[in-house]
Structure formats: structure tokens, C-alpha cells
Simulated scan of single mutants.
Amino acid sequence: MFFVRTASEHDLEKVSALLAATWHATYDAVYGVDKVSEITAKWHSVQALAEKLKRKDSEFVVADDGKALGGMGYAAMSASEPTVAILHQLYVLPQHQGQRIGRDMFAELETCFPDAKVMRLEVEPRNTAAIAFYEAHGFEKVGETGNCGGDQSGSQSGIPALVYEKTLG
């Protein structure tokens, strides 16, 4: 049984490994192993995760069963839109998917931003499982971007994504 809790510095190596495993399982067939390795090295390094953990207007959670982490989630208030929370990451290890871990982490994250009226996220157009999950949780497609993760990494990724939003409150 996994429970959701706030992440700590102690978790970051495990979260980095979880993200690498999840990204390879999900995106190797889409982008290739080398591109996924490049992305995970940049976006999911312990150093990059530590910066997220320090951010004041954010929430970083993990799903923990006391022995291992089964998932992670990270959301933060938009720097440019004061009523928008951005769901940057919500990942569950493939072997633990279907156990309601994603649902539980999402339920926690969507309550962490009382000033937010909208939660926004980006999702790879070919990630049909993630799209189905988000739509089942009230998100609707509102657009597209050619720069997935651009605001989290500070650079142009060139990765296409669908943009989804959900009204909060």
C-alpha cells in the first residue's frame, strides 16, 4: 500500500531513478533511447530535482510504501499567471500503474494551491494512457505547444505536447 507524502532531499536519488525508468518505459519508442537519456539527465537529475524541492510556491510529492517509491508528482504556481498552477510531473512506475497511485498523488496536488483557479499540464500527444488519465480527472485540451517543459528547463525543448487544463475549486 502506497501513501502520498511530501518529498525530501533524502528521496531525490530514488525519484531521479524512478523518472529515468518511467521515461524510458514510456518514451523510448517515441523519441529513442538516446533522446530520453539526454532529457532525463537534464530534467531529472538530482540537482534539477533539488531546485524544484526548494521552490516556495510548489508541491513535490512521492508515493511511498515504506520500502520503495512507486510514483512522484510535482506542481507549482505559474510565474506569469497568478491563478494558474502547473502540473509539471506526475509519474508512476510501470509495475505500479493501475493501483490508484497517480489518482492519489493528483488528488493531493490539486488541493495544494488555494489561489489557483486553473491547473494546466502538457502531455505528449502519443501518450494515450496519460491523456485518458487526465481526461478522466476533469482536464480538457486547450491547445498545443512545440516546447514541452520549456518553462521548467529554461530552454527550447523542441518536443511537441498537448496542453490541458482543469478548473479548480
Rank of each mutant, 00 (worst) to 15 (best):
E165R: 05
A76K: 05
P114D: 08
V84C: 00
A129E: 15
Q99Y: 13
D57G: 10
I131S: 10
V62Q: 08
T167E: 09
Y74E: 01
E144D: 15
A116I: 03
G154T: 03
S78H: 05
Q95L: 01
A116V: 11
A41E: 05
F60D: 01
K54H: 04
A79H: 14
I86S: 14
F113K: 03
D64M: 00
K117S: 10
R103H: 13
A29E: 06
A75G: 04
K35N: 05
E144V: 15
D28S: 06
E59N: 11
L87S: 05
L87I: 07
V30H: 11
W23S: 04
W43R: 14
I101T: 13
H137I: 04
G71A: 07
V46W: 13
G102C: 08
S153Y: 08
T26M: 12
H24D: 05
D28A: 03
P114E: 08
T111R: 15
E135Y: 04
S153A: 10
D34N: 15
N147I: 01
R126Q: 15
A116D: 01
F60M: 00
A41I: 00
D34W: 12
G143N: 01
H88D: 08
M77H: 04
A161F: 10
V84S: 02
S155D: 06
K67Y: 11
K52I: 02
G73T: 08
L90C: 00
P160L: 12
G32M: 02
L53D: 00
K52D: 10
D28W: 08
T128C: 10
Q156L: 10
R103E: 15
L69S: 11
G158E: 11
V163G: 09
F106N: 07
F106V: 06
L87Q: 09
P94Y: 03
V62D: 07
F113S: 10
K54M: 12
A130N: 07
A85Q: 02
G66F: 00
E122Y: 09
V142R: 13
V36D: 09
T167F: 09
F106C: 14
T83I: 02
G70T: 07
E59W: 05
L69G: 02
F60I: 02
V46P: 11
Q47D: 11
V163T: 09
A68V: 13
C148N: 12
K52N: 03
P114Q: 07
R126C: 06
A85N: 13
A116Y: 05
A136C: 07
A25G: 09
H44T: 12
V118K: 08
A75K: 04
T40G: 00
G32R: 02
A29C: 08
Q95V: 11
I101V: 13
T26R: 14
D115W: 08
T128L: 13
Y164G: 02
Q47M: 02
G150H: 04
V92C: 13
A136G: 08
P160F: 14
V84Y: 09
A85Y: 10
Y27M: 14
L121Q: 00
Q89I: 10
G143W: 09
I101N: 04
K141S: 01
P94D: 06
P94L: 06
H88F: 10
T145P: 08
M77L: 08
